[in-house]
Design a binder for these strands. Structure first.
Lengths: 112, 112
DNA sequence: CCCATTGTACGATAACTCTAGTAGTACGAA
DNA sequence: TTCGTACTACTAGAGTTATCGTACAATGGG
């Protein structure tokens, strides 16, 4: 029950991935996942939007295949699908992450 | 007269660039510019959209800073701003181009 | 000057996105 | 069972985007 749909590695679409990455809130999520540990709950992210909007962004990321989500009690744990992305679109994620860091020197303090 | 506004290299925004690249028509334009010569006229692109929609996509690419456009007679010549992009977002353009080729093996024949 | 070529501007429409509020579900703890 | 936490679903509004048709402007060639 409460299964969350994820696209397979082979189903990843460049369109969807780039479109998911074009939102700053979602890039912030991806950045925190890339820099921090795996399995971070949604509540571990300090996002400048409401809870329902957060849910929306996490869903977009999951459906694009950028993150993997699975339930653990009342929480959902999020993990970056770095290997899948690297296999399908080599260098893309790293380039975006680097560009993102360059653009926002202090991600935790930025206003967004 | 008929000056076309372009963002400076330092003004390039990751948001805008990724969002511009998330459309397949625009990726096709970028791909053809990357693989072909500089200064290709808009009419050199066989796009599956109307002329006015084409204009729209070229404008989005120019305003995002991905291409440089300048008039030459009745035509506009388009050039990929590869150096500017590489300076600001290293590896990003190449990663997208490679992913794009991988996803669409024969760009000229694809249905889009 | 007339005309063909090339691209723009404008108006319209349908679809999508981001945002939030409200209500509800699943789970763990007391 | 009752409560709090964590997150989702649904609904809705505001804004943006992609698309096109039509009309128009700029240039170069005869």
């Amino acid at each position: 029950m409460r299964a969350l749909a994820h696209p397979d590695r082979g189903e990843l679409q460049l369109d969807t991935v780039l479109s998911a990455l074009s939102d700053p809130v979602r890039r912030r999520i991806i950045g925190q996942l890339a820099d921090g540990p795996d399995d971070q709950a949604c509540s571990a992210f300090q996002l400048p939007v409401s809870k329902s909007t957060s849910t929306h962004h996490f869903r977009v990321l999951r459906e694009a295949g950028l993150i993997e989500q699975h339930y653990s009690g009342t929480s959902i744990l999020n993990t970056l699908r770095a290997a899948d992305l690297e296999a399908r679109f080599p260098g893309l994620l790293q380039a975006v992450l680097q560009a993102s860091r360059h653009e926002a020197p202090s991600p935790t303090a930025e206003r967004l």
